[in-house]
Design a protein around this nucleic acid. Structure first.
Length: 876
RNA sequence: GGGCGGUUAGCUCAGUGGUAGAGUAUCGGUCUUACAAACCGGGGGUCACUGGUUCGAACCCAGUACCGCCCACCA
């Protein structure tokens, strides 16, 4: 048969993938029907930032749900998987402001209107990149439902949520000490701060007492903040300072009078047991100050520069150079007692890694406790299930101790806070529609709050606003709550928890039933991928090199729930080889069925046909069970092993003689098995399976629209499995003997076989032609007596023996070595089992079937040893 | 300071009570007409350590060590 009419020998993924990716989108295969009467299965994609280009985290984050989506769709579900993007305030600001800076511009110079125009322009231009990439990579998303977190519907919903929460008292404004990033020029919420240990110093500073009698020494890591000190605190029970209670110290440099207060929160054992109190620049001091009525003196501004209140000597200095100057002056004036090296945790901005500055300012907050309570309950009662479940503990830990959420940001790109301040009576107006006049005094001199909302505020609404909320749309009714949310553990607090809280609050329902938490993608040495390390593995580059299917399969085969994934290119090369294997198996099948009768006569099935069907049944069951539990790695492993090591290595090889003999049913089973196998593989490798499927006789519009195999469709055939098991044993034994004696495959040799019981004998009789073919034997005959004086190479199972007359083939001393080694291994095993069986405790207490099994194993091993020993002494 | 996870073959990882597995790497042999991105075969592990429970432990319990991550107001 000429090969030219068939598929090429080497599979080239790129053209195939591009073709089908386009086809799926153009044919709208993944558009869900809201009127369908099939059961629904819905998900929303975690919206990638519009700034980004696709990275491995994304690739993982859509590959796994795509596997589920395709699987469920093939199982007959009405699958709706909604895509979209997130406006990502800070990230967009960083990108745009950086490009402005290159032109010598700042956002202030540009102005708010113009900046927003640039941002939208930028979003239109680059925001589509990820969407394009997702389409190219074949994620089976419903593109008719694509959303953006700043589209008009979203703006309306965000405003409604804000107004409702405000009216209920769950959103409030307060003058509070918050975290500010001096570089990003905005405040951040607590969870946007990353604490990292840094090498710092602990400065001991002496503050003289006002009455001139003595002094008190305090320890601080931030001496520059002393300029804003308004008190000193000691522990009430600390005997060292009892005489100082209620007295007054003098702040060096500034000269301010500092009352010495007592508070339980002071640690007696740290430093000197006395702490300076700077209410405007430290969270603990802020509380202390509020409780004890201390003044708040702001000495560092939002950009990290010293204010006028820091005094003329320091005003305008950066906080770090100010530290040096303050320390120098303290030293010069004798106030600096000592300086110690000190490692401590310092908060950094999660976006730009700048050290965070506590910053006293008016901000908007969400009161979290009332929202958290039902969200905790939903997980406690199992309405929402984390996979793996131990992530629920992380969720609970955070939720129980939740703090109020600072939601205002001093940025422009985002949802502007719907609050107005009356310039005449100072009233605050929060409203759905832009107000014309003050509701208190009727003045029309209103000024809208300059700030926008934290990006995560709108992200929290993603699962229901994307479906039409606050309208009661059919989509919302049919597809909400969603079934599965797949995302990384790093955003459980940022996103998952807040979606649960907001979902319950505004829809009265959970937003999703299952939360699948995937790990971080790391490099092959388990290091985080980062640009600075230069160890980024770019998914698009991998796609180019190995194909999307190989990338997807690699991610799936490494995805153990909740565990980080360490990725290597070798692994991907291996899976490209797997794709190629599938391709060539398909080529082989297609070559052999072209123009042939494919009718299936059950009477005509060969042993191999019966065996592969039975194996396929079991693998199908295992695959479905694994996916049911989100065990992607296990599912991938099962299908990989089945295709490569059962379908290709044994079944297709066994088909060759049958095909030669012209057995029609084998062709039928071959193509039937190939087709079912492709369906099983499709969720993992959508492209190559589609391409091959389209070459099969009777192919439909798309493999994605076929129905997923179920184990019930096929019958098990234990007899065939057991016979092929025996076949594999014998063939492997003969091959091993050949390989160890360097008997090349093309050298046709004779072999003898015998069985130690009648049943094995009759089974071997059936298997002889197969063994001959697979082991490359010229002949294989039953022979009762091997001991006829001809030196042989021997192998044995428990109930059978093979012998290859060795004359002229090999060096017998090598054979003796081989037999000795094998016997030794068997004897070690036998010794272990004997010890176990000699223990009365084992016989008495272990379950009967375990004991029986152990006995049977021992008997088998002993039988083998006997046979091999006889062979050995025969040679000797 | 609290919590979570990890430690199994050279490497990356599966494996929740009954004779240690995969991929890859490695060594040897093959172009056996689907596939050299392939085929056949081999070697390679006191399952981190110490105790305990059990007839039996990689697996359960207690502790130790090292690695990683998250949370945390000792300035």
């Amino acid at each position: 048969m000429s090969e030219s009419s068939f598929l090429p020998t080497v599979y080239d993924p790129a053209p195939v993938e591009e073709k089908w990716a386009r086809f799926w989108v153009e044919e709208k295969l993944f558009t869900a029907d809201v009127n369908s009467d099939r059961p629904k299965f819905s998900m929303v994609l975690p919206p990638p930032n519009v700034t980004g280009s696709l990275h491995m985290g994304h690739a993982l984050c859509f590959t796994l749900p795509d596997i589920i989506a395709r699987w469920k769709r093939m199982q007959g579900y009405n699958v709706m998987w909604l895509p979209g993007t997130d406006h990502a305030s800070i990230a967009v600001h960083n990108v745009i402001e950086q490009s402005l800076a290159e032109k010598g511009l700042t956002r202030e110079k540009l102005g708010r209107q113009e900046f927003l125009r640039v941002a939208w322009e930028w979003k239109e231009k680059y925001g589509g990149i990820i969407i394009h990439q997702l389409k190219r990579l074949g994620a089976s998303l419903d593109w008719s439902r694509e959303r953006f977190t700043m589209d008009p519907g979203f703006s309306l919903a965000v405003r409604k949520v804000f107004v409702d929460l405000y009216q209920e008292g769950l959103i409030y404004r307060d003058y509070y000490l918050v975290n500010r990033c001096p570089r990003c020029q905005t405040v951040l919420s607590d969870i946007e701060i990353e604490h990292r240990e840094v090498a710092g110093k602990l400065y001991y500073i002496r503050y003289p007492l006002a009455d001139g009698e003595g002094s008190i020494v305090v320890a601080t890591t931030r001496p520059e903040t002393m300029l804003g000190d308004t008190g000193i605190a000691v522990h009430p029970d600390d005997p060292r300072y009892r005489h100082l209670h209620g007295r007054v110290a003098i702040l060096p440099i500034i000269g301010r009078r500092l009352p010495i207060i007592t508070d339980e929160r002071v640690e007696k054992d740290f430093g000197t047991g006395a702490v300076k109190v700077t209410p405007a620049h430290d969270p603990v001091d802020f509380d202390l100050g509020r409780r004890h009525g201390l003044e708040q003196v702001v000495v560092i501004d939002g950009a990290g520069r010293m204010t006028e209140a820091a005094g003329p000597e320091f005003q305008g200095l950066d906080r770090s150079s100010c530290r040096e100057k303050v320390v120098a002056r303290l030293q010069a004036e004798g106030y600096l007692v000592k300086v110690e090296d000190y490692r401590h945790n310092v908060g950094h901005c999660y976006r730009c890694q700048t050290i965070i500055e506590p910053y006293l300012s008016w901000q908007w907050f969400v009161r979290m406790k009332p929202l958290a309570q039902p969200a905790i309950k939903a997980v406690e009662q199992g309405e929402i299930i984390f996979v793996p479940e131990n992530w629920a503990k992380t969720y609970f830990d955070w939720m129980y101790r939740i703090h109020d959420w600072c939601i205002s940001r001093q940025l422009w790109w985002g949802h502007r806070i719907p609050a107005w301040y009356c310039q005449d009576c100072a009233a605050t107006i929060v409203s759905l529609k832009d107000p014309d006049r003050c509701s208190q005094c009727g003045s029309s001199r209103l000024r809208q709050d300059e700030d926008i909302l934290d990006t995560w505020f709108s992200s929290a609404l993603w699962p229901f606003v994307t479906l039409g909320w606050p309208e009661e749309t059919p989509d919302l009714r049919v597809f909400y709550p969603t079934d599965l949310m797949a995302t990384g553990f790093d955003i459980i607090f940022f996103w998952v928890a807040r979606m649960i809280m907001m979902g319950l609050k505004f829809t009265g329902k959970i937003p999703f039933r299952h939360v699948f938490i995937n790990g971080l993608v790391r490099d092959m040495y388990r290091r985080k991928m980062s640009k600075s390390r230069g160890n980024i593995i770019d998914p698009l580059e991998m796609v180019k090199k190995y194909g999307t299917d190989a990338l997807r399969f690699t991610l799936a085969s490494l995805a153990v729930p909740g565990m980080d994934i360490s990725l290597s290119e070798e692994r991907m090369a291996g899976n490209r080889a797997f794709a190629n294997k599938v391709w060539n198996a398909a080529r082989f099948v297609l070559m052999n069925i072209e123009g042939q009768d494919l009718s299936l006569n059950p009477q005509e099935l060969t042993l191999a046909d019966r065996w592969i069907r039975s194996r396929l049944k079991k693998v199908t069951g295992e695959l479905n069970a694994a996916l049911e539990q989100y065990k992607f790695y296990e599912a991938a492993d099962k299908i990989y092993h089945f295709i490569w090591h059962e379908f290709c290595d044994w079944y297709l090889e066994l088909c060759k003689p049958s095909l030669k003999a012209g057995i029609t049913s084998t062709r039928a089973v071959m193509v039937e098995t190939l087709e079912r196998t492709l369906l099983l593989l499709h969720p993992f490798m959508p492209f190559i399976t589609e391409e091959i499927y389209q070459h099969l006789p009777g192919a439909g519009k798309s493999i994605a629209l076929t129905s997923f195999p179920s184990a019930e469709e096929i019958e098990a055939d234990e007899e065939a499995e057991s016979l092929v098991g025996l076949l594999q044993e014998v063939v492997t034994e003969v091959r091993t003997i050949r390989a160890q004696h360097r008997v090349a495959p093309k050298v046709k040799i004779k072999a003898w076989v015998k069985a130690t019981d009648e049943i094995t004998r009759s089974r071997l009789a059936v298997l002889i032609p197969y063994v001959k073919f697979l082991a490359g034997l010229e002949s294989l005959e039953f022979k009762e007596d091997f001991e006829a004086g001809i030196p042989c190479l021997r192998g044995a199972g428990a109930t059978w023996e093979v012998a290859i007359p060795a004359a002229g083939l090999v060096d017998l001393s090598a054979e003796k070595e081989r037999l000795r080694r094998e016997i030794k291994q068997i004897e070690e095993e036998i010794a272990k089992l004997q010890t176990r069986l000699q223990s009365p405790a084992f016989i008495e207490r272990a379950p009967q079937d375990v004991v029986a099994e152990t006995r049977a194993n021992l008997a088998e091993l002993e039988a083998r040893r006997k046979k091999l020993s006889r062979s050995l002494s025969g040679i000797e």
